[in-house]
Amino acid sequence: MREMIITNNPLVVEKYSERVLFIDGSVEQVLIKVRDMVHRKHGLISHPLPASLRVLFSPYRSVIIGRNNGDINPLQVEIVENSILKYKKHMDVREVDKENNEDYQMIDLTLLESALKDEQVNSMLSGY
């Protein structure tokens, strides 16, 4: 398997069951799993953070992880570590928005699918 989705979003599990590593927990736990994988030489395919604060308050997050590259990528380590720090900093003073679970699941899925589409183009270009 070339890439894997680390997620706590049930909607993503339903649709991509064969490519999912399900985390039965919080967004923070998803990010920590992603960090561990990056430290174990897996590539970081999609950015761990969303593009706005509002989506940062989402209870769901899906991140795409690549194959084991055989090397640790320092840029990717920095990105994932910074993302966790930033996430925790915000959530120290906020609460996860649980009122809109279904909408957050749907948005997380559509943003993930944008990334998957982009990756397909890239994988075709790079020949694997």
Partner: peptide
């Protein structure tokens, strides 16, 4: 454009 993937970025 701002992409979500690192390769896109």
């Amino acid at each position: 454009p701002e992409h979500t993937t690192l390769s896109g970025k």
